[in-house]
């Protein structure tokens, strides 16, 4: 199978999965739904419509034979990996530690050679944003190592 058909395939599997899950949803008694529709009907209708459109898209691919998308450089995949790192650091340490580490590493990953510039960006940005949200907008941030120290 050609690479270009991967997208329609994934979209089709997703649509079929949604239909399968929708069919498992509870049904409401007739007296509540009346002449309207069950909760499952609308998502199923949408996915059928989507499957038809995926069929048309596949036909367009067959006729036009588009070029496969070139693979991105390590910057993109590395950035996505940093999102995962941010998740882990936020869950296990603190959201602001996560932000600091990700900004610092992202700057380096994207080509910043001056370590002190990356460090300052990673320190000043979350600091300023924290002050703005905490003092001006009165937002309480999730507890973690740093926030426990701050909130007490």
């Amino acid at each position: 199978m050609k690479n270009i058909y991967l997208v329609p395939l994934i979209l089709s599997i997703f649509s079929l999965a949604v239909i399968a899950i929708a069919l498992q949803l509870d049904t409401s008694p007739e007296m509540i739904v009346g002449d309207s529709m069950q909760a499952r009907s609308f998502p199923i209708f949408l996915m059928i419509l989507k499957l038809i459109l995926i069929g048309i898209l596949s036909f367009q691919f067959y006729k036009n034979n588009p070029k496969p998308v070139a693979l991105e450089k390590y910057h993109t995949w590395g950035s996505m990996f940093l999102f995962l790192l941010f998740y882990l650091l936020t869950i296990h340490t603190d959201m602001f530690i996560g932000i600091f580490v990700v900004i610092f590493l992202m700057s380096i990953l994207w080509g910043e050679r001056r370590i002190w510039v990356a460090f300052l960006t990673a320190t000043i940005t979350p600091g300023l944003v924290f002050l703005l949200f905490d003092y001006v907008l009165k937002i309480r941030f999730p507890r973690g190592i740093l926030m426990n120290l701050y909130y007490g």
């Binding site: 932000i99 990700v102 900004i103 610092f104 992202m106 700057s107 994207w110 080509g111 910043e112 510039v117 990356a118 960006t121 990673a122 940005t125 979350p126 944003v129």
Partner: peptide, 10 residues
């Protein structure tokens, strides 16, 4: 970009 977009992330 290596300064701007990490800020956008935050």
């Amino acid at each position: 970009t290596q300064i701007l977009w990490p800020i956008v992330f935050a």
